[in-house]
């Protein structure tokens, strides 16, 4: 397997706050990777730096063999890396359909090509509720529907790697039970996933490999199954003692 995304010694600072320090991580082609960690650990900042939303203070980011560190976000998405941001950031004052067309903005031909229409139908197949709501303002959707829209919008750029930040935020368990299997299916179809998640149990269940972030650094990494039985992870993130 070849590395699709390689991050080396990444640092992100906001003024004097060092949000990410010396972080290195890897996502292979088609892999499902998660980053777990507590509030303020630097997970979102890591994703934002990779997506070009914030400029890294130091470090290398290589996508598909090409350096992308410091590149603007609109260029990064053209190279096949798409982010579903924390808080979703859907365009609340536009319709569901317009949000989806905007998801295809980076593609050649933009909105009205046949390929984009096909992909829209694919999204409606994944999330049928979006089809019913397609002419509705995105801001009027429920939290779960908004997350579906944010995911669909992220997919419409046809990424090879989808980064999802805090998908579970504010959503009912019932909604998550429909969302996580969809991500898993996308991954089985070949899409690489980098998932940032506070719900460590869920992240470790689905991701092949995981990184544990604490105080701006990577504390641990490894196959999710191994991390799930690691004492430190169990105590700090899974919120239960190992049965003994």
């Amino acid at each position: 397997m070849a590395a699709l995304l390689e991050v080396k010694n990444l640092s992100v600072t906001y003024g004097h706050v060092e949000a990410v320090r010396d972080v290195s991580l890897l996502v292979e082609e088609g892999e499902y990777v998660s980053i777990i960690g507590n509030n303020g650990a630097g997970k979102s900042s890591t994703l934002k730096a990779i997506a070009g939303v914030v400029k890294p203070a130091a470090g290398e980011i290589v996508l598909d063999g090409k350096p992308i560190a410091g590149m603007a976000s609109y260029d990064v998405v053209r190279r096949g890396l798409s982010m579903v941001p924390e808080g979703r950031l859907i365009f609340a004052d536009q319709t569901v359909e317009d949000n989806l067309y905007l998801g295809a903005y980076s593609r050649r031909g933009g909105g009205r090509s046949a390929a984009v229409s096909e992909d829209l139908e694919r999204m409606f197949a994944l999330f049928p509720i979006l089809k019913d709501r397609r002419q509705q303002l995105a801001g009027s959707l429920s939290g779960g529907e908004q997350q579906m829209l944010a995911l669909s919008r992220g997919l419409l750029s046809r990424p090879r790697l989808l980064m999802i930040d805090e998908m579970s935020l504010g959503l009912a368990p019932r909604v998550l039970e429909t969302l996580f299997p969809v991500i898993e299916k996308l991954n089985r179809d070949g899409l690489a996933i980098l998932l940032v998640e506070q719900l460590a149990t869920v992240a470790l269940r689905y991701a092949h490999r995981s990184y544990v972030m604490e105080d701006s650094r990577i504390l641990l990494s490894g196959p999710s199954g191994e991390l799930a039985s690691d004492e430190r992870v169990i105590e700090a993130y899974l919120g239960r003692r190992k049965a003994s």
């Binding site: 070009g52 939303v53 603007a72 609109y74 950031l89 859907i90 905007l102 909105g111």
Partner: peptide
């Protein structure tokens, strides 16, 4: 039009506009 939608997207949230590929 995509350009028109992009105008509204930029007005709404520049970060969100950037991550879908809009050059603000």
């Amino acid at each position: 039009t995509q350009l028109g939608r992009a105008m509204r997207a930029v007005a709404f949230n520049r970060v969100a506009a950037g991550i879908v590929g809009i050059n603000v």
